[in-house]
């Protein structure tokens, strides 16, 4: 118990003194996870719209695969992305392994199925006649898509939160593809693992609390956007 209080005190010390290393890791974590969430949103919403609004053979199989992908273990993603990015691997020419871009790529792979899966469910929940109604009122196809997305914005923002939650909490993929390099690819989760391994439990607790606070802050902003105008 004493250790926990010590950790909480240390967390406030690190924040109060604006410890440059901790601040750097925190901002870097925020940057990487937000970029990955953004990329996943673009890919996942696109794929979600395509899956929800079109009919093609094997569609159910694809949706099942996406739903399975919502539980994709980060270490599995980490392993495969690492193998692709190895110097002598298929994407080795880009020299991405152990860079921030590698973490963003891996996290995008983790979050895209989450956002796709929830988007499909959100869009399918809309009244089926809505599309026809919108089109019959003379809307163009992009306008129709935009209206559908607007109509489903509550669950879609929940999808963004789930995707963000998936990437900010994962450690396996970031550790494998990023390498936990000081000042370059160290994020809050990998730093916590390392400090725990070193026996610096107070610092580890401090980093965990910062991670929780950061997750809360981002979700608070997203929730605010989500709840801004209550649907009638």
């Amino acid at each position: 118990m004493e250790l926990l209080w010590e950790g909480i005190r240390k967390a406030f010390d690190l924040l109060r003194t604006l410890d440059p290393e901790v601040l750097g890791i925190t901002l870097f974590t925020l940057k990487v996870t937000l970029l990955a969430t953004l990329a996943s949103l673009v890919l996942g919403l696109g794929a979600g719209l395509a899956l929800a609004l079109t009919q093609f053979p094997g569609r159910r199989v694809v949706i099942s695969l996406v739903n399975t992908g919502m539980g994709l273990p980060p270490v599995v993603v980490g392993l495969f992305v690492t193998m692709f990015l190895w110097r002598n691997g298929p994407l080795g020419g880009f020299e991405l392994l152990y860079t921030p871009s590698a973490i963003i790529l891996a996290q995008t792979v983790i979050a895209t199925p989450i956002i796709t899966g929830i988007s499909v469910a959100a869009l399918q929940q809309l009244p089926p006649d809505l599309r026809l109604q919108i089109l019959s009122l003379g809307a163009t196809r992009p306008q129709m898509l935009w209206l559908l997305v607007r109509e489903a914005r509550l669950p879609l923002l929940a999808a963004v939160m789930a995707g963000f939650g998936g990437v900010i909490s994962e450690v396996g993929a970031s550790l494998m593809v990023g390498g936990n390099i000081k000042g370059s690819t160290r994020v809050l989760t990998t730093a916590t693992v390392m400090e725990t391994g070193k026996g610096n439990f107070d610092v580890a607790i401090a980093l965990s609390l910062i991670l929780l606070a950061l997750t809360f802050a981002v979700n608070a902003v997203l929730t605010h956007i989500q709840q801004r105008e209550r649907p009638r």
Partner: peptide, 23 residues
């Protein structure tokens, strides 16, 4: 799909600056 991933990656690299000076 793959092209979009690469494009978003390229964007990410630009955002993050000198992270990948391989030499």
């Amino acid at each position: 799909m793959k092209n979009r991933i690469l494009a978003s990656l390229a964007g990410a690299i630009l955002c993050l600056g000198p992270a990948a000076f391989a030499q």
